[in-house]
């Protein structure tokens, strides 16, 4: 049994290993995990000066082709698929929008300039097999699915080390593999000392999203790229899917897109809570609610 707590990608992580593991191996694995997350963050974070994302946002990137790391393929493919499926409501091209609204690298948390609609994917980018052509410099943001993705990557790392019983919790986005289920409280976004229900997770990814923490002025970090406003009617969304990356991406999608559209392509269960505390959910989201 082992536990690791640390901070990374802007949130708090806790990794639990439910198998017996010798101390030397444990230290080695935990060190590898931290390195892997650091590599991911240094490539894809818009809050890092030297990240690929920051480079692409600068004027001098125009017309250049960037060779991306191997792990880009899965993430870019998902982002593009969802971009098409959601008709652009789910897009990585929202970095400038978030930044201009105040959620910038300096955490200004005040509107910096007039907000403009993000460019379309084709206007700004051309992506093919880890090669990215920048037609127009743009600030990308992978917050919607990046965390879920790196959680899955960490899970793979554990499994490559023969650890198959574990829980990875990065700020409430969870990947869980174990023989017995785990009870996950659904945090009340209006009162973080409370939960509105408890979900019993057997195995897989489980993600939650709400606008209560990263909120400033009339904005929160869940921004609608077409209305240029932040989600307000829906208070919180939870999704479970086999992969944490998909669960993470879909929590964002569901703020703007009906579940039926997403269900055409993805297998998932969800719960959505409106600001009046009424709930909507898929049939298979089996959960204990408080009322």
């Amino acid at each position: 049994m082992a536990q690791l707590n640390f901070k990374a990608i802007g949130t708090s992580w806790q990794i639990d290993i439910y198998q017996n593991i010798d101390q030397k191996k444990e230290a080695e694995i935990f060190s590898n995990i931290k390195d892997r997350i650091e590599t991911f963050e240094s490539n894809y974070s818009r809050f890092r000066d030297n990240s690929i994302v920051t480079k692409i946002s600068k004027e001098e990137s125009k017309g250049k082709i960037y060779e991306l790391p191997d792990d880009a393929e899965k993430m870019f493919t998902l982002y593009h698929d969802l971009y098409v499926l959601t008709d652009g409501f789910f897009t990585p091209l929202v970095g400038n929008l978030l930044s201009d609204a105040g959620y910038d690298a300096k955490y200004s948390l005040e509107k910096q300039k007039e907000l403009t609609t993000p460019p379309t994917w084709d206007e700004a980018l051309e992506y093919h097999r880890n090669k990215l052509l920048v037609k127009k410099p743009v600030l990308l943001d992978f917050g919607a699915a990046g965390k879920g993705y790196i959680i899955d990557i960490v899970g793979e790392l554990l499994e490559n080390n023969n650890i198959y019983e574990y829980c990875i919790d990065a700020g409430g986005d969870i990947l869980y593999k174990n023989k017995t289920p785990i009870r996950i409280g659904l945090e009340n976004p209006e009162n973080t000392g409370q939960v509105i229900g408890v979900y019993t997770l057997n195995n897989g990814g489980f993600c939650g999203s709400a606008g209560n923490r990263r909120a400033w002025g009339k904005f929160n970090h869940i921004m609608n790229p077409k209305t240029l406003e932040s989600a307000s009617e829906i208070a919180a969304i939870w999704v479970t899917a086999e992969s944490t990356m998909i669960a993470d991406a879909l929590t964002t999608c569901l703020f703007f897109i009906p579940a039926k559209t997403l269900a055409r392509k993805y297998d998932f269960e969800y719960l959505l809570m409106h600001k009046d505390f009424s709930i909507e959910k898929s049939e298979g989201f089996s959960c204990e609610f408080f009322s």
Binding site: K7, G10, T11, S12, K147, C167, D169, A170, G171, G172, D173, I174, I182, R183, I184, G185, L186, E187, N188, P189, T192, V195, V198, Y199, F206, C207, G208, S209, A210, G211, N212, R213, R214, A236, W238
Partner: peptide, 11 residues
């Protein structure tokens, strides 16, 4: 419960 899920804890 063992875990709580909602918006991510902020730095």
């Amino acid at each position: 419960l063992s875990k709580v899920s909602g918006s991510s804890l902020t730095p």
